[in-house]
Design a protein around this nucleic acid. Structure first.
Lengths: 114, 114
DNA sequence: TGTATATTTAATAATATACTTAATTAAGGA
DNA sequence: TCCTTAATTAAGTATATTATTAAATATACA
């Protein structure tokens, strides 16, 4: 079981619709495992494993209260994921803009030479 | 091979450091498969498979030129990923703010009653 | 104490992922 | 035509992921 870097853990955790649904639920406020599991058809252990994946990625936090675990979302990993995506989007868009500038100036030269 | 929704494909594609490195390279401009493969120690077929994953997620685009394939990044899936992340971050932060407001007003009441 | 509820752990199985080497396809150029 | 280069496909393998059922653990509460 190879150790994974945090971005890989975060994106992998987000790559499953069940886990994204869990985060959607938690983005409205903390909930117990039971409350989280309720809308899904899968077994309780399956939910428990999904929660473990989310926790390992730092996306959720559990606090124990008697036999109940209350889960809440954490935004730091979302910040990290977002930062990566935004950086690449921005750099690519800069490239595209530069390319457009280049094409424009090419056309201008073309026009001047005729 | 179950059909996956697009967000799952995108996040899964981003969940691998080799593929993120490929996108980092491509965010600086288009490149051929050879150029992309160069910094990596893994075999050419492994790169080819990573490119297939990125392509299936819509993150890259290939244009064929004789035996060379030129690859470039596409930002639509990055937009989609970013939108999901931002939405959840925002909603969770709103919750937190509301909670803080609530606590503040509780404290205020507490102070008034003493 | 005994029982119900909440949740996790363990064992297992099916499927998916990420790599490998060998073979194949396709084009350029001596 | 033959050889080289670029890239993909095919086949095989190790490991990871996602689910299952059965059992274990922990707490509340009659």
């Amino acid at each position: 079981m190879a150790v994974k870097d945090s971005l890989s853990l975060i994106f992998a955790a987000l790559a499953d619709p069940t886990r994204r649904n869990i985060l959607t639920k938690l983005s409205q406020g903390p909930a117990t495992v039971r409350e989280i599991a309720e809308p899904f058809e899968i077994s309780a252990p399956a939910i428990s494993q999904h929660l473990k994946v989310l926790e390992r990625a730092g996306l959720i936090e559990r606090t124990a209260n008697a036999q109940w675990r209350t889960l809440s979302i954490r935004t730091e990993p979302l910040d990290e994921a977002s930062a990566w995506v935004e950086k690449h989007r921005r750099e690519w868009n800069l490239r595209i803009d530069a390319l457009e500038e280049h094409l424009k100036s090419m056309i201008k030269k073309e026009e001047q030479s005729t």
